[in-house]
Design a protein around this nucleic acid. Structure first.
Length: 471
RNA sequence: GGCCGGGUCGUCUAACGGCCAGGACAUCAGGUUUUCAGCCUGAAGAUGAGGGUUCGAUUCCCUCCCCGGCUACCA
């Protein structure tokens, strides 16, 4: 894995962004072989530190006549575009035709260009796109595509601050770093002709990488590509790790913080636009690497469906070692100042593991194992708590205290016996018992719960519930 | 507007031109005779429209419709 930082837009520099990317990759289990920190054969790996290289290659294009200087101000460019739009011109680009009206190597004398540069006037270097002809190329996913040169723009290659645009930097670096495959979002497809032209003008066609333009990830509802806004609106994460906006100080929770496991996110994301060709859907990182192939990527955009991501998480959480979950639960309990016993934590995790979708649910759903419920769900009480149930509870309490072995099976047998003796159905007493023990009507298997709690604790809770709720 | 790319169940998707268009998530129903969750079983649910080509079209061709991306000294 190579990490190259494409930081050629100094106006959009975000402190901490590079570190964030590295942390994200680490969380996802993706290890770097080459990068800004790791170094490697093709240092440096930050484009902002490769300025000289790009300038050298831009110079080469200029001397070959494939690029030229331009001195137009932002206002002049805007005026040109407005004019062309109003004239309903065939193309509104800076191209073979419109460049004749602008200030550049074509309209200015060689001396003029030279003196402007020497006097420190700001300039850019633009690609000299031919007036006619076609650029044809093959994309692994899209197939053969061809574009007329007269629909292309004389893209800026080198900005007035001396840094390259994506187009130049990307082509130069991919060549220098011996990149074999360019796999990127579909939004880059319209730029590919520019890039192909560059490979041609550098005479690098022979080693030109293969291109694969991936379908976009779309917002869950409506149309358009997924954005942070949509994610916020629908209440699911979009950042892998939580991220604080430097300007607004607004913190966006990441998938990690929301409780998603990296395996789940990876598996989910991999299946947005790709499938292995059979019915299997569960792939860990290694299996993904082994099974993946570009030719099985679909062409259409994929809507982001958080429900599927949750399903993946639910699956992968079952693969998390119990020890890890025990640690999480223990830490959470400690933080709340709740005392606990390690064995009990282990038992609880064993019981709860299959029931949760996110790790953090563990604490909330298992808290009652460690603290006597303070409140009893009102609706539950209204529905299931009555005089008959209370007297039955008193009976089972006495019976439980007398039991020599208090395990799941024995509890079940004894409870059934009491029901028979009192001539009351099991379904009457169980809900009330559950309310007394957990405070609500939902939860894991009650017999197992009682076993973990132990007869004394169970007895205490029954007493407390009766005195609190009454009968 | 121009250029490029798309369009199969609600969603992600499968289907050398040929088996009732298959699977998964979500939904709904039943089961697991203590709940909820889980798990098991089942149900419902799609080829954007119209023309061709063909014995046969989701697949190939044309037209239309719809959607997306790009159209910056951003990536």
């Amino acid at each position: 894995m190579i990490l190259r930082i494409e930081d050629t837009d100094q106006t959009r520099y975000v402190p901490g962004a590079e570190e964030y990317i590295i942390n994200t990759l680490e969380w996802a289990g993706i290890e770097l072989d080459e990068g800004p920190k790791e170094g490697g054969e093709f240092v440096p790996y930050r484009q902002s530190e490769r300025k000289d290289i790009y300038q050298q290659y831009a110079q080469q294009l200029i001397s070959n006549g494939h690029a030229y200087y331009a001195f137009d101000s932002a206002e002049e460019l805007e005026a040109m575009r407005t004019r062309l739009r109003e004239e309903k011109a065939f193309s509104q680009h800076y191209n073979a035709e419109s460049r004749q009206q602008m200030k550049n190597s074509f309209t200015l004398s060689e001396e003029e260009v030279k003196s402007r540069i020497e006097s420190g006037q700001p300039y850019v270097v633009r690609l000299n796109v031919p007036a006619e002809g076609q650029v044809a190329f093959t994309d692994i996913i899209r197939g053969d595509v061809s574009v007329d040169c007269n629909t292309l723009d004389d893209k800026v290659l080198l900005k007035s601050d001396g840094l390259p645009t994506y187009h130049l930097a990307n082509v130069v670096d991919d060549h220098l770093m011996q990149i074999t495959h360019v796999i990127r979002g579909e939004e880059w497809l319209p730029s590919l002709p520019i890039h192909v032209l560059l490979y041609r003008y550098f005479d690098w066609q022979a080693e030109m990488p293969s291109f694969a333009h991936l379908p976009l990830i779309l917002k869950p509802e409506g149309n358009g590509k997924l954005s942070k806004r949509d994610a916020d609106k629908s209440g699911f994460p979009i950042f892998p790790l939580s991220w604080e906006d430097v300007e607004t100080k607004e913190v966006s929770e990441g998938f990690k913080e929301a409780g998603y496991l990296p395996e789940a996110l990876l598996n989910f994301l991999a299946f947005l636009g790709w499938n292995p060709g059979d019915d299997r859907e569960l792939f860990n990182k290694e299996e993904l690497i082994a099974a993946f192939s570009l030719d099985r990527i679909g062409k259409g955009g994929a809507k982001f469906d958080i429900a599927k991501a949750q399903w993946y998480n639910q699956h992968y959480i079952k693969h998390v070692p119990n020890q890890d979950l025990e640690q999480i639960l223990a830490n959470a309990l400690s933080e709340e100042g709740i005392t606990f016993d390690d064995n009990k934590v282990a038992e609880v995790v064993g019981l709860m593991k299959e029931r949760i979708t996110f790790q953090h649910e563990l604490v909330n759903q298992a808290r009652f194992f460690f603290v006597n419920p303070e409140v009893y769900d009102e609706r539950a009480v209204q529905k299931k708590w009555n005089e008959q149930a209370v007297s039955a509870l008193e009976a089972v309490r006495d019976a439980y205290l007398e039991m020599t072995t208090f395990d799941q099976e024995s509890i079940k047998v004894r409870t059934n016996e009491i029901c028979t003796e009192l001539d009351i159905p099991l379904g009457k007493i169980m809900p009330a018992l559950r309310i007394a023990i957990t405070g609500s009507l939902s939860g894991p298997d009650l017999m197992s719960t009682l076993q973990i709690l132990g007869a004394n604790e169970v007895s205490e809770r029954i007493v407390k519930a009766i005195s609190t709720i009454g009968n």
